[in-house]
Design a protein around this nucleic acid. Structure first.
Ligand SMILES: [Mn+2]
Ligand SMILES: [Mn+2]
Ligand SMILES: [Mn+2]
Ligand SMILES: [Mn+2]
Lengths: 237, 237
DNA sequence: AAATAATGTTAGAGAAGCCTAAATTTATGT
DNA sequence: ACATAAATTTAGGCTTCTCTAACATTATTT
């Protein structure tokens, strides 16, 4: 109701949504999948935005024929809206797979990364990333050596980036000179296990556990110790 | 001049630029590298934006202490501005490497892709992609088999996506039934070379050259023929 | 069946970013 | 030097997206 005549489904061309509106659509789709009905309140909560802003966004989406709702009522996607939401979700999902599965970021970061990028990727880039993810999964499954090598590289990070409670194995001490000598003498050697016990209030120094002893290190020093995080990520696929 | 006291360089915290402003900064840096002076006109032309809009953006950037310029005068980056621009450029550059070098997109698409995404990637994602690019380059250099396999996969595209004049080798016919039989009988077989002679005004049908003969195909039919583009991309690294 | 609470909409405002049209300033040519 | 051209800024307007405060509707209690 609004368009007068033919070609409502065919006229699918001028469908260029802003990143924001795509997120609203995606959000509605996800909520709809988990609940009977979707309300302004749910969207507001889920996106961390006030209800009036959501209300206004819903109006914009309704004008584009992507959402169907009546005043004070439930919110539903039109078929067109659902189709678009589905597209966004697919992008989100395989981008998250890329960041988590291939690039080894934790699920949460991978998701937020995906949700920021999903609106800016061209279809071609999507396709190529999708293929890369699939290829990588196949190769990882057949345990080709290169996927292991890559993982080793990707899992390296400076000790200073761990969070409280994280455990890691030391890979190398990436500083030279006196500091290196000091660190090595303290026991920071390849293969050794460390655990972050606690950050001081200002994140400096940080307290570590190494071979049963507790050691304090300044963040600048910890930055030079390259570790491989361990124990995390219970692979909740 | 504006901030009254200490810590102008140290206070580097609240430096969250919008995607737009990052692009302005990047643009100024690039122009500055290629010319003696940068003017509003140059930026406007380079970004495809009107001069008044650029003027306004310059004001916003000057307020943030990232650009130094006086009315009707040249535009320069402050040290802080240059530092930020440099960061954006680095992101752009290795993202472009990712899309071109790893994902096999053509340079132009890779660049525009990179320039859209560069503003939305977290530092962690940046680092991981950077590592992936490096790893891939090393592996491709030592000609490991998997990089070749991956390339084969990434280079596949439907015949319908080629542009006029493009040449390609057929990899497979990805349809079943009568249409498949017809296409195969016409000569669309694995290993055969094709060239796109011309698209009809409405992009349908498209005229192809196959084994010296000219053949017309509807786009829907061409979509089912998976090819590997060839001859393009003179590797202008 | 009120009264109260929860939810949703309206009104109004502000920041970013874009535009066109109209000054204003600087550069250039004779 | 002065007229003209080019570049820049100002002024004013528009869209998108956000917010708070106030009002309206719907749901829940009592
Ligand atoms: Mn998103
Ligand atoms: Mn998303
Ligand atoms: Mn950019
Ligand atoms: Mn860029």
């Amino acid at each position: 109701m609004k368009h007068s005549s033919v070609q409502e489904t065919v006229e699918f061309i001028g469908t260029e949504l802003s990143a924001t509106l795509e997120d609203y659509l995606e959000c509605v789709a996800m909520l709809a999948a988990g609940q009977r009905v979707v309300r302004v309140k749910d969207i507001a909560k889920s996106l961390g935005i006030t209800m009036p802003s959501v209300s206004a966004a819903i109006v914009r989406l309704r004008e584009k024929g992507l959402i169907d709702s009546e005043k004070y009522g439930y919110i539903e996607l039109t078929p067109q809206g659902a189709a678009l939401a589905e597209r966004v979700c697919r992008k989100h999902s395989f981008l998250a797979d890329f960041f988590h599965g291939v690039l080894r970021m934790d699920r949460k970061s991978a998701n937020s990364e995906a949700c920021r990028l999903e609106h800016h990727l061209s279809p071609e880039a999507c396709r190529q990333i999708y293929r890369l993810v699939e290829f990588h999964r196949d190769q990882a499954q057949s345990e080709t050596p290169w996927t292991g090598e890559l993982r080793e590289i990707l899992d390296e990070k400076p000790l200073s980036e761990l969070k409280e409670g994280d455990r890691a194995v030391i890979r190398r001490v990436a500083v030279e000179g006196a500091l290196r000598k000091r660190l090595v003498e303290m026991g920071f050697r390849k293969g050794e296990k460390v655990r972050v016990v606690r950050y001081a209030p200002l994140r400096n120094p940080l307290e570590l556990e190494l071979k049963g002893y507790h050691i304090s290190l300044r963040v600048e020093e910890a930055r030079g110790i390259i570790v491989r995080q361990v124990g995390d990520e219970p692979e909740e696929e």
